[in-house]
Nucleic acid binder design. Structure first.
Length: 273
DNA sequence: CAGGTCTCCTGCTAGC
DNA sequence: TGCTAGCAGGAGACCT
């Protein structure tokens, strides 16, 4: 499942491949992934647009076009490939952007959970994109910001950190790793988190995401990159997917439990209630 | 408002 | 071997 580091890796990879290339036609093969627009309008407005940049906010990719922007969320398994337009369309390719170079940008998504939203430059998104909290790299982000957002919440801290309107970019993998590094049990209520613990969460979020970006993100479970790109951060994971293995810190066996509706990995010794 | 639960979708796995 | 039930999961809809 692509989280901030994986989406950033996609952005960096795709940018030089698409810059200044023009969309000459669009084939939409799965209508339900388009948000806040009809399929006909979505495809027709894109024709003639040129890629001028790609930005990222949290886990969202933002394709900057001539006079539109396209907000793309990969959810669990979304991938982009650049292929020669003559190559036959594969089973899970749902959107085909044919370019003026004879290539085509293909959006591939096995589970069809991804979304795309086309917006004017000054238009507000109808999705969670418009209510994203700061990401750990923002100047405005700090442990005090986190405390203000969470200290009065009775959710488990795991759920609080997964909430993109609180902190954007963390998903199931990285929340587990941040809480492990911060020595905080994932089921602890947000309201019980102390100042020194908020400090650790804020610091570790930044450090872990930075390290993951430098390693090209993590290729975990079903998510992998297209075009031969492989993330290496999965080798650095301490708890996520490591159930029944010894903790790197203390040797206790890593456990798995459901917290906030998500499969959660933690060390019962390092991360006490 | 806050928090919980269901839904979307498909491939994979456990169990018979 | 072949079948099915169950599971995974980000974000939005819906409910309490």
């Amino acid at each position: 499942m692509p989280e901030l580091p994986e989406v950033e890796t996609v952005r960096i990879t795709l940018l030089p491949l698409l810059m200044n290339k023009k969309i000459v036609s669009v084939q939409l093969l799965y209508d339900k992934m388009i948000v806040n627009n009809t399929p006909e309008s979505f495809t027709s407005r894109l024709v003639g647009q040129t890629f001028r940049g790609i930005e990222r906010r949290g886990k969202y990719l933002i394709f900057i076009l001539s006079n539109l922007k396209m907000i793309s969320h990969l959810r669990m398994e979304g991938k982009y490939y650049l292929k020669d337009e003559s190559i036959p369309i594969e089973k899970h390719e749902h959107v085909i952007f044919t370019l003026d170079t004879g290539e085509s940008l293909r959006y591939h998504d096995t589970r069809k959970f991804g979304t795309m939203e086309l917006l004017e430059f000054n238009q507000i998104s109808q999705t969670g994109f418009s209510s994203l909290g700061f990401e750990p790299f923002d100047d405005e982000f700090s442990w005090i910001y986190l405390k203000e957002k969470l200290a009065h919440s009775n959710r488990p801290i795991k759920g609080g950190l997964l909430d993109q309107s609180v902190i954007s970019g963390l998903g199931n993998i990285y929340v587990d790793e941040v809480l492990y590094s911060s020595k905080i049990h994932p089921a602890r209520l947000c309201s019980s988190i102390r100042d020194d613990e908020f400090k650790k969460i804020a610091e570790n979020s930044k450090v872990i995401l930075e390290k993951a970006i430098n390693l090209g993100g993590a290729s975990v479970h079903s998510f992998s990159y297209g075009d031969g790109i492989t993330g290496r951060f999965q080798n650095e994971l301490n708890v996520h997917t490591h159930a029944d293995e010894p903790c790197n810190e203390c040797g206790y066996v890593i456990e798995k439990m459901k917290v906030a509706g998500r499969t959660t990995y933690y060390c019962p010794n390092c991360q006490r209630m």
